[in-house]
Amino acid sequence: MNSNFVRRWRQQNWVMLLILVVQLLVFAGETFSGGSESGLVLVNWGAKYDPLIRIGEWWRLITPVFVHIGFMHILVNSFTLYYIGGAVEEMIGHWRFFLVYFLSALSGNLMSFAFGGGALSAGASTALFGLFGVYIALGVVFDDSMYYRQTGRQFLMLAAFNLVFDLFAQGIDIWGHIGGLLGGFLLIIVFALPGQKLRKGVYWQIGASVLFLAICAFLYWLGMVR
């Protein structure tokens, strides 16, 4: 295979683009199968619905990341994924981005499962808040870097603003956002940056790994028994 093609392929934010294409295709499927604001359509396409998770449909802790409710929902999340997701993938690499994105979605949906009251929910915002958490964590872990400190503060303010807005808005799954934010924060400590070791040591990575797994296990248990 041509080396220039391989180099260009590696430089493309292809994971972000693939996720974007899939969520747009899913939205089109929702639209043509009854409308993206129909509860039945949303459930059929994989939205988070607690009673079905409790009877074994565990994949609904991941699939909601592709499902959206209404045109503005898909529009805002798609633009956010394109700009912020592309920047994060370029910074941390393809496989790290893939894992952080979907594991943040998992922790966000688990938080919603445990504390969200059982409401039907969907959207990429659990994973997108995970990307906010990446920048916030980098400002803490690489606190000797002026760029990471300033960027971390900016995303902390952005996340805080969004969470305050969530408190006063209807139909917003604030627990999913909090869970995604926490997940992204811990996961970038686990995986670190390409070619860089954490100045604070490998114990931070081990601790973040154990804490992430413990939180996810606890949230799943709590959601199952509530």
Rank of each mutant, 00 (worst) to 15 (best):
107 S>L: 14
107 S>E: 13
107 S>W: 11
110 L>G: 10
111 M>S: 14
111 M>F: 15
111 M>K: 07
112 S>L: 00
114 A>Q: 06
118 G>Y: 13
119 A>S: 13
119 A>D: 13
121 S>I: 09
122 A>I: 03
123 G>N: 07
124 A>Q: 06
124 A>S: 15
125 S>R: 04
125 S>F: 10
126 T>G: 05
126 T>S: 15
127 A>E: 10
129 F>G: 04
129 F>A: 00
130 G>V: 02
132 F>R: 08
132 F>A: 04
133 G>K: 05
134 V>R: 06
134 V>Y: 02
135 Y>M: 13
136 I>K: 00
137 A>T: 05
137 A>G: 03
137 A>I: 00
141 V>M: 12
141 V>N: 00
141 V>H: 06
145 S>I: 09
146 M>R: 14
146 M>I: 12
147 Y>M: 14
148 Y>V: 05
149 R>E: 08
151 T>R: 03
151 T>Q: 10
151 T>K: 06
151 T>Y: 03
151 T>V: 15
151 T>E: 09
153 R>N: 11
154 Q>E: 10
156 L>Q: 00
159 A>E: 01
161 F>D: 01
161 F>I: 13
164 V>W: 07
164 V>T: 09
165 F>Q: 13
166 D>R: 01
168 F>I: 14
168 F>L: 13
169 A>T: 11
169 A>E: 05
172 I>R: 10
173 D>T: 08
173 D>M: 04
174 I>L: 14
175 W>L: 09
177 H>N: 15
177 H>V: 07
179 G>D: 02
181 L>D: 03
181 L>V: 02
182 L>K: 09
184 G>C: 01
184 G>H: 06
185 F>V: 00
185 F>G: 04
185 F>N: 04
185 F>W: 10
187 L>W: 10
188 I>H: 05
188 I>Y: 09
188 I>Q: 04
189 I>D: 07
191 F>K: 03
192 A>W: 07
193 L>E: 08
193 L>F: 10
193 L>K: 13
195 G>Y: 08
196 Q>A: 15
197 K>I: 09
197 K>T: 14
198 L>I: 15
199 R>C: 08
199 R>F: 13
199 R>I: 15
200 K>L: 14
200 K>D: 03
200 K>G: 04
203 Y>S: 13
204 W>R: 15
209 S>P: 12
211 L>M: 13
212 F>E: 14
213 L>Y: 11
215 I>D: 05
